[in-house]
Amino acid sequence: ELREAFRLYDKEGNGYISTDVMREILAELDETLSSEDLDAMIDEIDADGSGTVDFEEFMGVMT
């Protein structure tokens, strides 16, 4: 189920989504998050600083 959700956002099928897209997902899930909260969450999610979120990083957030 998580893989299907990931595929919805990984429109190009390249195995990752951008941190911008991940930020939008988080904002949709919790509309009360401030910009600073979102920045901090993205920094934590994208631990390797690649600017992308792969499936493993995505799973870590969603579980």
Rank of each mutant, 00 (worst) to 15 (best):
E1G: 13
E1S: 14
E1T: 14
E1D: 15
E1Q: 13
E1M: 09
E1A: 14
L2W: 15
L2N: 05
L2D: 06
L2I: 09
L2C: 15
R3M: 13
R3G: 09
R3H: 11
R3Q: 13
R3Y: 15
R3C: 15
R3T: 10
E4S: 04
E4T: 04
E4C: 14
E4V: 03
A5P: 03
A5F: 15
A5T: 14
A5E: 08
F6P: 01
F6E: 04
R7M: 15
R7E: 15
R7A: 15
R7N: 15
R7I: 15
R7W: 13
L8G: 13
L8I: 11
Y9C: 12
Y9I: 07
Y9N: 06
Y9E: 06
D10H: 01
D10P: 00
D10W: 06
D10F: 08
D10G: 02
D10Y: 05
D10I: 04
D10T: 02
K11A: 09
K11R: 09
K11T: 13
K11W: 09
E12L: 08
E12F: 06
E12C: 08
E12I: 06
E12M: 10
E12G: 06
E12R: 04
E12W: 08
E12Q: 08
G13F: 05
G13T: 03
G13P: 01
N14H: 09
N14L: 13
N14F: 09
N14V: 11
Y16K: 06
Y16H: 06
Y16V: 08
I17S: 00
I17N: 00
S18I: 03
S18A: 07
S18K: 06
S18H: 10
T19P: 03
T19F: 07
T19S: 06
T19A: 06
D20A: 12
D20Q: 14
D20P: 04
D20T: 13
D20H: 12
V21C: 12
V21R: 09
M22V: 09
M22W: 04
M22K: 00
M22I: 09
M22P: 00
R23N: 00
R23A: 02
E24Q: 14
E24F: 10
E24A: 14
I25H: 02
I25D: 00
I25C: 04
I25T: 00
L26W: 04
L26R: 00
A27E: 06
A27T: 08
E28D: 11
E28A: 15
E28T: 12
E28Y: 11
E28H: 13
L29I: 08
L29K: 08
L29M: 13
L29R: 13
L29C: 12
L29S: 05
L29N: 08
D30S: 07
D30M: 12
D30P: 03
D30A: 07
E31I: 12
E31T: 14
E31G: 14
E31W: 12
T32I: 04
L33H: 03
L33P: 01
L33I: 05
L33A: 05
L33Q: 03
S34I: 04
S34C: 06
S35I: 10
E36F: 09
E36R: 09
E36G: 09
E36Q: 12
D37K: 10
D37F: 06
D37W: 08
D37N: 08
D37S: 08
D37I: 10
L38V: 08
L38C: 02
L38W: 03
L38A: 02
L38I: 13
D39Y: 04
D39L: 06
D39G: 05
D39V: 04
D39M: 06
D39H: 06
A40T: 08
A40C: 11
A40R: 15
A40G: 06
M41K: 07
M41Y: 08
M41R: 07
I42F: 07
I42P: 01
D43V: 11
D43N: 15
D43F: 13
E44P: 04
E44V: 11
E44N: 12
E44R: 14
E44Y: 11
I45N: 01
I45F: 05
I45G: 02
I45Y: 04
I45E: 00
D46H: 04
D46F: 05
A47E: 08
A47M: 10
A47R: 13
D48M: 07
D48Y: 06
D48W: 06
D48H: 09
G49S: 08
G49C: 09
G49P: 01
G49R: 12
G49Y: 05
S50K: 13
S50C: 08
S50Y: 05
G51E: 03
G51D: 03
G51V: 01
G51A: 04
G51H: 08
T52F: 10
T52Y: 10
T52H: 12
T52E: 07
T52L: 10
V53R: 01
V53W: 04
V53F: 05
D54T: 15
F55M: 05
F55R: 02
F55C: 04
F55P: 01
F55I: 05
E56C: 11
E56T: 09
E56S: 10
E56M: 09
E56K: 10
E57M: 15
F58V: 02
F58L: 05
F58T: 01
M59I: 14
M59P: 01
M59N: 03
M59L: 12
M59G: 03
G60S: 15
V61G: 07
V61N: 03
V61R: 03
M62H: 04
M62P: 03
M62Y: 07
M62C: 09
T63D: 07
T63Q: 11
